[in-house]
């Protein structure tokens, strides 16, 4: 038996939930390089897809004539305005539903009925109610943001550990104090992850909202580029939207790190 004393072999390789930091950048660079190559050699005709450097040129010319900031500014105003409005209303309703039995009983079925409505379909109605100016655009975004915020806030409040609330009651805290000191911070992780969803919804809806009655804004720019078959500008606009989305999620990441340091 002496010759059969094998050393134990390592068999726990792989399946590690880790990521390599450089990998996504490399993939990005490779994809863009392949894209540029395909465009330059004519494999990908510019009629169907602009090349990366054409997209960069389109972005550059936007930057040079100053329209870039006009478009971003107009869109940001609508996104931020609509998002703030929708989030504030959503937080109020979500909290009410999480705390009061009556609000929950009424709110849950109403939200369930209205949530799935595609807000874009309501745009013509908003135009009748609010005109073709800014209010209808902000209302579209606000409504799109409102429902997911209600749902995420409600479930975040609902998930605040009951024992913390009972503890606060046992020390004689008033209801407003419990909401402010226990429920709000306890629901904050859920609310913030709800913000991640609602901010990307706001970004999607700004394109729809800018279909009507405006010439400025990234959404209007993308739509006009589509109508004009200016594919380089179209892709440039899409790149801008994606950068805007990345910026927003980066900011939310910072907010999470600051507000949820205790986790």
């Amino acid at each position: 038996m002496s010759e059969t004393q094998p050393t134990v072999t390592f068999r726990g390789r792989g399946f590690v939930p880790a990521t390599k930091r450089w990998a996504p950048w490399l993939a990005f660079v490779l994809i863009i390089a392949a894209w540029e190559f395909a465009s330059d050699t004519g494999l990908l005709p510019s009629l169907f897809m602009p090349s990366p450097h054409e997209v960069l040129l389109a972005l550059y010319s936007l930057l040079v004539d100053g329209k870039l900031f006009v478009h971003i500014g107009a869109s940001l105003q609508r996104i931020v305005g609509g998002w703030l409005l929708g989030s504030f209303a959503g937080l109020c309703f979500g909290f009410a539903m999480g705390i009061f039995v009556l609000a929950r009983s009424v709110g849950l079925p109403v939200v369930a009925a209205l949530f799935p409505i595609p807000k874009i379909a309501l745009l013509p109605l908003f135009i009748l109610w609010f005109g073709i100016g800014e209010p209808s655009k902000i209302a579209t975004i606000a409504l799109g943001v409102f429902f997911p915020t209600v749902v995420s806030t409600y479930s975040a409040v609902d998930n605040v550990p009951r024992n913390l609330i009972r503890m606060a009651q046992s020390f004689g805290l008033s209801t407003p104090a419990i909401v402010w000191k226990v429920i709000l911070p306890g629901a904050m992780p859920g609310i913030l992850s709800g913000f991640r969803i609602s901010s990307s919804i706001a970004l999607i809806l700004v394109v729809a909202a800018e279909m009507i009655g405006t010439q400025v804004g990234i959404g209007a720019f993308v739509l006009a580029a589509g109508n004009l078959m200016q594919t380089d500008q179209l892709v440039a606009g899409v790149v801008l939207l994606s950068l805007l989305g990345l910026t927003i999620s980066w900011l939310l990441g910072i907010a999470e790190k600051t507000l949820l340091r205790w986790r």
Partner: peptide, 16 residues
Amino acid sequence: MKPVQSIPNMMAALSG
């Protein structure tokens, strides 16, 4: 100029 995408929308914007 107010782009409203379609002729029915143009008519609605004017009558509204």
